[in-house]
Design a protein around this nucleic acid. Structure first.
Length: 426
DNA sequence: TTAGGGTTAG
């Protein structure tokens, strides 16, 4: 660890690591209880309280306090503060506590510092399944699913048995890669442990993997076999149908959920705990289904119901879905009015949706408006200019096209391509 | 009082 944090003197050599006597920590200190409670409500407060403690009474800091601060840094993605806490872990001699090491890995993963995740992992002497899973999870979180699956294999070769969490994060890697063969292989490993079928997070990850890898039939099979579903199970399946153009199935499922809630609310006489109330993510799936099926009136109705019946404040994603829905049907003017009436500032994606649709439906006026809005946002890409230029060409507006092309060469350097050559050992 | 997990448009 001296190599890792070279400015910090290592208090103990690895040959003479301190024996942490957990018995002395059995009684929780009041300060640790406060650090822990702030972690939920206001993680920044955990950090402030801890730094106060360091100044006033460093002897009150123990491994639990450090753990809560590391978690606070993870939640708020605070890399510098996280690294400072790591230094303290070393200074105070708490390195042998594996809970701290895995939390540190999680913190470095959250702050996109994958190199340090790996350094912490490498220096853990006896790596258990949690250490390996944290490493796999770090790679998944940092968009490196191929590497995550490689590590999953290394773990197996090392003789460490994967558990439910390892399988859940590994399935997430397969979903990100769209690697059905690897997902099926992991499903097969899971099937050998019947008790794992009771783990809802794992089952949801399985549904999601089949959805993202394009095997909607298999996704439905897993979905139907989940006895007690939660809102994520339903959302994954609704999004799955929407992504595969099965809008009617997606909306049927949404209605089934609403019906189930109605009958449950009669049974439970008003207790909301038993209900699976649709959330903002689920409505993205519902709106996406309407958009893919060209169901504009239904889409508008669901958008209203989301706000009025469910009290969900639409986010940029929901407005984006509505713009997409209107644009796909060629309702460009309505889409433009909708964008102008949005209570939040439209982003580049929304203007680019309008630009693309204006090209498809040959509306050069709206295309020019969308393109100028993209420039205002400083988010204009070469492709946007090309799109507008192609619309001018299709309309025979050669002067406009030449002017735009001239502008493009003035503003841009010629494009170049980058190709990433990755490798996956199988 | 201590570790790692699943749903999100274009």
């Amino acid at each position: 660890m001296t190599r890792f944090l070279h400015k910090v003197a290592k208090p103990f050599t690895s040959a003479a690591q301190p024996q942490i006597n957990l018995a002395t920590h059995l009684k929780p200190t009041r300060i640790n209880l406060s650090l822990k409670s702030y972690l939920k409500s206001n993680p920044i407060k955990t950090i402030f309280l801890f730094s106060d403690l360091l100044r006033k009474k460093i002897s009150a800091v123990d491994s639990y306090s450090l753990l809560y601060v590391i978690k606070a840094c993870t939640k708020k993605s605070l890399g510098t503060e996280g690294k400072q806490t790591h230094t303290l872990v070393i200074k105070l001699g708490y390195e042998p506590i594996i809970f701290l090491q895995t939390s540190l890995m999680d913190m470095y993963a959250a702050t996109t510092n994958i190199a340090d995740v790996h350094k912490v992992f490498d220096e853990i002497p006896n790596k258990n399944v949690v250490c390996w899973t944290s490493l796999i999870s770090a790679y998944v979180r940092n968009q490196k699913p191929y590497r995550a699956i490689e590590i999953f294999r290394h773990m197996q070769m090392d003789g460490v048995e994967p558990d439910q969490v390892t399988f859940t994060v590994s399935l997430s890697a397969c979903a990100d890669m769209g690697a059905l063969d690897k997902g099926v292989w992991i499903h097969d490993l899971i099937s050998r442990k019947p008790e794992f079928s009771e783990d809802l997070s794992l089952m949801n990850a399985l549904v999601n993997m089949y959805v993202k890898c394009g095997d909607i039939r298999k996704a439905m099979l897993v979905f139907d076999n989940i006895r007690v579903k939660d809102i994520r199970t339903w959302t994954s399946m609704i999004v799955g149908h929407a992504l595969h153009g099965q809008a009617e199935e997606a909306l049927r499922l949404f209605s089934a959920l609403e019906e189930e809630n109605k009958s449950r609310s009669i049974q439970c006489q008003g207790t909301k705990d038993q209900l699976l109330v649709p959330n903002d993510v689920m409505f993205i799936g519902v709106l996406m289904a309407c958009s893919h099926a060209g169901m504009v009136e239904e889409g508008k109705r669901y958008f209203r119901s989301m706000i009025e019946e469910y009290g969900i404040k639409p986010r940029l994603s929901h407005f984006g879905c509505m713009v997409d829905l209107l644009c796909r049907l060629g309702l460009l003017k309505e889409a433009y009015s909708f964008i102008l009436a949005m209570p939040i500032q439209p982003n580049a994606v929304i203007w680019r949706t309008l630009l693309g649709a204006s090209g498809v439906h040959g509306n050069e006026e709206l295309a020019a408006v969308a393109q100028s809005r993209l420039r205002e946002l400083n988010a204009s890409l070469v492709g946007d200019d090309v799109a507008l230029s192609n619309i001018y060409a299709a309309k025979g507006m050669w002067e406009e096209k030449i002017m735009l092309r001239h502008e493009m060469t003035q503003r841009r350097t010629p494009g170049c391509s980058l190709v990433e050559v990755g490798k996956l050992h199988s």
